[in-house]
Design a protein around this nucleic acid. Structure first.
Lengths: 140, 140
DNA sequence: GCATCATCCTTCGTATGCGAACAATATGAA
DNA sequence: TTCATATTGTTCGCATACGAAGGATGATGC
């Protein structure tokens, strides 16, 4: 049991995965009362930046596979967070818009994301936080 | 499109998720020739540390949900990487062992993980690598 | 010895994540 | 114009993830 605690730290990918899983899980718990998943929240943040964005562009924005996005969008339409409109100029394109429901919760949900980020980094000094973000950005 | 590039960097959880996804995807590509998934590789590494480990203990070791692990183990048995044995002293317990197939590839697969880690961190200085690992460890 | 509780594993349901194939549509070259 | 090609979104298949419930088994208190 403690053998692995001497071994796995050499695997940074493992550490990265577990750090991600923990942060993801904590944010997930915060979102549960809203019946939103992490990915659905991310889609809303994307739409608040670019209302009427194309599904393809949103996928690029969020670095998300279009196959994954397709299902997420359908579920968000079913639960009333967003709506689709087909582009009049290009029959292939879907444009995405937020609904009143999401507009009403916008400030609350953005605050939730900010709080989740702060909680995750709470144990770090300011310098460590800046460095950590830079290192992560360099990796992506 | 560039609006989000000014915005998402404020979300460290997003950066963490994307860094994880990228590292995960690169390792996944390396494992494809072996018909192994990332999680299956991780299970093998766990078994090489503790042959005959309990499924429950392995889950704790790898910080993995037992529900997830159950399916992973079944697929690994089907593909001949591991085998199950029920504990003679405790009828609830399954003990996991590697097969010859995985023993034969052990050094190769461990080298693969080391290479994947080095590639991921190749852009960092030694100091940055050490610091990055420490920050990740602190998060988990 | 038995009822209660804890533990181990499985199964189910829902939601990613992503490669691959596909239909519908647009675009560009001949 | 028409055919080849590219793009958009959907669907399928497989593999995580994980909460929740359930069945089998062990341990504990009385």
């Amino acid at each position: 049991m403690n053998k692995i605690s001497q071994n796995t730290p050499d695997c940074t990918i493992f550490l990265l995965a577990k750090a991600y899983q923990k942060a993801h899980g904590q944010f997930k718990a915060k979102l549960r009362p809203y019946n939103l998943t992490n990915l659905q929240h991310l889609v809303l943040e994307g739409l608040w930046i670019e209302e009427g964005v194309t599904a393809a562009d949103l996928g690029k924005l969020l670095v998300m596979d279009k196959a994954t996005l397709s299902g997420v969008l359908d579920r968000m339409i079913d639960s009333g967070w967003i709506r689709k409109e087909s582009d009049p100029d290009d029959g292939r394109v879907l444009r995405l818009y937020t609904t009143e429901k999401s507009a009403d919760l916008r400030e609350e949900l953005i605050a939730l994301r900010i709080a989740a980020n702060e909680e995750m980094l709470a144990g770090f000094s300011h310098e460590e936080q800046v460095l950590f973000k830079r290192l992560l950005k360099d990796l992506s």
